[in-house]
């Protein structure tokens, strides 16, 4: 009787966990294992065609593709290109505007947050209109200064920066909010003490605020990588289709392209495995850095 009760007691937590654990097992972890397995086969997703075992063939093939390297370079470009919008500008704005009265702060807060609520597809369609070479308001404004027209989305050198800019537009207000909140939590007596000691404004920022904000900065970096990965897909899909000449394709878009345009499950899975490994290393690196920085705080 007692043994049975104890058994039931140890079962209870698992019953509560079941829905979440089951969902992640079915939709995340099993598919992850499946992606690894499928990366060793060649298959075109049609149910009645056979899957052929090709060993490391898919990996060899995709690693020999200039397209893959281009996509990886672009992915890095997206990540670094977002940093000014996600980290540098928000921290600068947060520090610069800390003295504003609460009423104004709340007003600005409410306004700059709005792009975060706009769906990526809507953002894409609106920016397509704004950046239209013929009649878009941006080019009309440039024309007033005798400039342009600029082919923001079809010039191979510019397109990726346009997409980075659109992603940054959606992110910058929210990142500024987070930076301001973190900045406001810095103990004012630290600042006052430094000021009493005659530290200049810049010295206070450089030696007190920025070190105390470093874990926030890392959080913003992580956020820009995560959200950037999600959002850029919609922008690329709607605005450039990866072009011109692959100039805006990043690794996420390439996976989709391999899988659902070329119908090459093997290639898509092999690059999925590579992406997962790279992503995990990057994330663990960031986590490790955050850990170190927060020790430094204390």
């Amino acid at each position: 009787m007692i043994r049975r009760r104890r058994w039931r007691q140890s079962l209870t937590p698992w019953l509560y966990l079941l829905p979440v654990a089951g969902t992640f097992l079915v939709w995340v972890y099993e598919p992850l294992a499946q992606a690894v397995w499928r990366s060793f086969f060649e298959w075109n997703m049609l149910p009645d065609t056979p899957m052929t075992y090709v060993g490391w063939g898919n990996y060899q093939n995709i690693l020999a593709l200039p397209k893959l390297w281009q996509a990886l370079r672009n992915t890095a470009l997206y990540m670094f290109g977002l940093l000014p919008f996600a980290v540098v500008a928000p921290l600068a704005i947060a520090i610069y505007t800390q003295d504003l009265p609460t009423r104004w702060r709340n007003l600005y807060r409410g306004l700059i947050f709005v792009p975060m609520l706009i769906a990526p597809v809507v953002a894409a369609s609106v920016w397509r209109w704004l950046l239209d070479p013929g009649h878009g308001v941006v080019n009309r404004a440039l024309a007033a200064f005798g400039l342009g027209p600029v082919a923001f989305l079809s010039d191979p050198r510019l397109a990726i920066w346009s997409i980075i800019g659109i992603t940054g537009w959606k992110l910058i207000g929210f990142a500024t909010l987070i930076a301001s909140a973190a900045n406001a939590r810095i103990n004012p007596s630290l600042i006052e003490a430094a000021r009493m000691d005659g530290a200049s404004g810049w010295a206070i920022v450089r030696h007190i605020r920025l070190p105390l904000l470093s874990s926030t900065a890392l959080l913003l970096v992580t956020m820009s990588i995560l959200l950037g990965a999600q959002w850029t897909f919609s922008y690329i899909n709607v605005l450039t289709d990866g072009g011109p000449l692959g100039a805006t394709t990043n690794i996420y878009y390439l996976l989709w392209d391999f899988g659902f345009s070329s119908l090459s499950v093997g290639w898509s899975s092999a690059s999925a495995v590579l992406l997962f490994i790279g992503f995990a290393l990057l994330a663990l690196g960031l986590l490790w850095l955050t850990e170190r920085v927060s020790l430094h705080d204390a």
């Binding site: 937590p13 990965a229 989709w256 999925a272 495995v273 994330a283």
Partner: peptide
């Protein structure tokens, strides 16, 4: 309970799996 930390870690780590990685099996 036994395994609680592991399961919690597995839940937290799902964000390490970009959706594009699991899209074909899904």
């Amino acid at each position: 309970f036994t395994g609680d930390r592991l399961v919690f870690a597995l839940v937290a780590l799902t964000w390490l799996v970009p959706f594009q990685v699991v899209m074909i099996p899904n």
